[in-house]
Design a protein around this nucleic acid. Structure first.
Lengths: 205, 205
DNA sequence: TGTAATTTTGCATTCATTGACGTTTTGCAT
DNA sequence: ATGCAAAACGTCAATGAATGCAAAATTACA
């Protein structure tokens, strides 16, 4: 299955790669809205029409490595040791898929720039949230399978609560311009709060 | 401030209303993608160009009452009794803003149809998630203000965890085609899980 | 009324996205 | 090697959302 790329596949991959690199470079240079699909295609030496057989939409290209991140996450969940607490399992998932550079060097290369790009373009924010949402649904299924003691609702709540806490905390940090250091600490705190529950929050003085 | 609408304002409101009704009716009849902005405008007897001075985009019109829902929520948070547990406060927010028909009869009228519509159109799902996300950021601020014992990260985690759990659970329920009855119960369960934390989940047998 | 402020509109334009259809490449079997 | 079928690509044309602009219409107010 993972054996023969074949000329066809190799060529497709190269084209795909070229499109991704062209797009991200142009977005960085001229901004997302100022870059047209036609330009991206031209820069990668591809017909405009063909762009859409590689990516469903202009914004999709920014999230080229989402699929592999998801696959990694599902894999981790599938390898759960029977009896391992759900909280521990999900902690590992967060660390090793969300905050790891899953998809080759390219992901690491564009990492921070991409983050800034997404934060600054509403259309990309929306796309990201939508993708993340789909991912959560799939994680829910995987978790439900790997943890027979959880019904579907419990699995969904677990995933939603953890991811939701982290996502909002990260956004709040970015909004106030925190350093990555601070943001990372905040993510840890968010994780703990999701795991220990809202009742673990400080009480009024 | 809330006194004189004036002819101008009244007219604008009527136009807005007309646009909303036309749009939702057409979406229901022919489907979202098959309905053009031009048709919506024509049905409401205004110029196509004018549509965009009432709504920023075609999908915005579906979420016409989001603003008032948010305002209601922020209001509730602002009225928090000092010493009231955060969990209790947020429970009330969920009940009275998310699951209440805030914006007049219109909201109630379109409720279920709109839910189905959003679920079936990817563009609307994305828009909804984006709006919901913004809402969460604003709730975070409001909560931080109303609860001095919470720092910003804690407030964000609280909101994110609760809303996240509910959102994913609702989606999971819809996906498997649960009845509203079932879904409502699931929301309660999701709320409890967010409040009590992932550690409150059933342990492996 | 007359004038300023605000809205509405028509028009042109840009650009993402899609469908139909013909052409080129590649994989594979003979 | 040769030929066929499928996969990929490209051309052309069309649709429809979204935006800028300036003229026309409407409303507010002195």
């Amino acid at each position: 299955m993972t054996s023969d790329p074949g000329l066809r596949q190799r060529k497709k991959m190269r084209t795909r790669q070229a499109l991704i690199e062209s797009a991200l470079r142009l977005f960085a240079e001229k901004g997302y809205d100022q870059t047209t699909v036609a330009e991206i295609a031209a820069t990668a030496d591809i017909a405009t029409r063909t762009f859409f057989s590689y990516f469903d939409s202009k914004d999709d290209i920014v999230f080229f490595d989402d699929r592999s991140r998801l696959e990694r996450a599902v894999e981790i969940i599938g390898e759960r040791q029977p009896g391992e607490p759900v909280a521990d399992l999900l902690r590992r998932v967060i660390d090793q898929s969300v905050f790891a550079d899953t998809d080759s060097e390219l992901a690491r290369k564009v990492g921070p720039a991409r983050t800034r790009l997404i934060a600054s373009v509403p259309a990309l924010q929306a796309r990201e949230l939508h993708l993340l949402f789909d991912i959560q649904l799939q994680l829910t299924e995987a978790l439900h399978l790997a943890c027979p003691e959880l019904d579907l609702v419990e699995a969904a709540a677990a995933v939603g609560s953890l991811v939701g806490a982290i996502k909002v905390v990260v956004a709040a940090c970015q909004k106030r311009g925190n350093r990555p250091e601070q943001t990372y600490k905040a993510v840890q705190r968010a994780t703990d709060i999701a795991i220990d529950g809202l009742n673990s929050l400080p009480r009024p003085a």
